[in-house]
Nucleic acid binder design. Sequence first.
DNA 1: GTCTATACGCTGATAGAC
DNA 2: GTCTATCAGCGTATAGAC
Lengths: 216, 216
Amino acid sequence: MPYLRRVAPTPEPLDCRILSAALDLFVENGYHRVSVHEIQKHADVSIGSIYNHFGGKEGVAKALYKHILNEVDELVEDVSHEIASPSEQCKEIIRLLFEYTETRSNIMAFIFHAKHTEFLPNEPVICNASPFIKIRTIIQRAINNGELNGADPWVVSSTVFGGAIRMIQLRLDGLIEKPLPEYYDSIIESAWKGIAGTGGHVGINPELHIQPTLMI
Amino acid sequence: MPYLRRVAPTPEPLDCRILSAALDLFVENGYHRVSVHEIQKHADVSIGSIYNHFGGKEGVAKALYKHILNEVDELVEDVSHEIASPSEQCKEIIRLLFEYTETRSNIMAFIFHAKHTEFLPNEPVICNASPFIKIRTIIQRAINNGELNGADPWVVSSTVFGGAIRMIQLRLDGLIEKPLPEYYDSIIESAWKGIAGTGGHVGINPELHIQPTLMI
DNA sequence: GTCTATACGCTGATAGAC
DNA sequence: GTCTATCAGCGTATAGAC
């Protein structure tokens, strides 16, 4: 009777409980304000287990970081295989990131809000992680393609993803009140067509030089 | 003989030495990896002085934060008074931010890289600080003006500043190798005119649904 | 106001029973 | 492999002399 077996479901693996608790706590309070004891408490495991599995707090953060990066990497891979046009791949990635911001906000917060170099000193900056490199490759393909214009790749990728990432951060910070998917069409159109109105100047501004005055 | 007096110049005020040292250390190592002893050592003052002036490490961070936000606020104010067109104001602000990224990178890093809520729990998110609110007001004026199009203000401001902020972060992370001012014309043009090429689709992508697979 | 020496709590980490 | 009890060290903060 297989049905009965499901009355006592296999409990969630210990590793997952630890990582899940750590993610929540890190996002909520920041890495340094979370102690191993708190993780242990929230994950309902012993301290010893945490050290056995991950070697310590930094090990937990590292595993979490790798795990999440891997998921994002798969997301990019999936999109790459499902869609032919590089330009459309970018749009789909943005659409999915907007979706995740609503459904898995902690993961997005961990990616876009956490300052990883502060608690993972030996890791390269996140922009050099695999999925982000892949995204820049997609951009380059779109440029070669003619789907995106021939400006500097940094400028193109910043324009394509900068607005979306900005909105994700504003949403995570609680400033934007509506779910991001509602803005998807609009942000894509703005990035691709630009935001110049009908009444304004579209050129580069003239030579204006306000001297910097910062004191520190 | 006023000249002679300058042989022994008034030493830099103690407060400034502390804030300056703290800024460097916070940016280099992150707030939590910097101890009060290190600040004391680098600023060449005693621990007692730090506690007398700022009440502790968090007080130093808070003062630094306020000070820098104030400088940015003045920057926005200056631009507002020098330039009439809201749209041109945005461009000039971006130009200045690019300039600062080269000349005062620590300040930019403190603004755009530090996770303030982690060490200043009671402060509102930085996007709600005065200069950023003013910038959004400028955006709104440009929309009312017709200088920027009538999309949602969040979309417009994210498109206008998202690309620039992205480039600042990439530059601070060491990925972009050339000084940002070289990209200024290009990023402005991309944001205002969009980045669609001649050979590509400019429309919204069709209904594509890749299911989320993140596990945590 | 400035400094030195000191106290104390917290946190990451370990040892050892089960 | 899992757990509990305990340790050692660091880092904030203070007390008190000058």
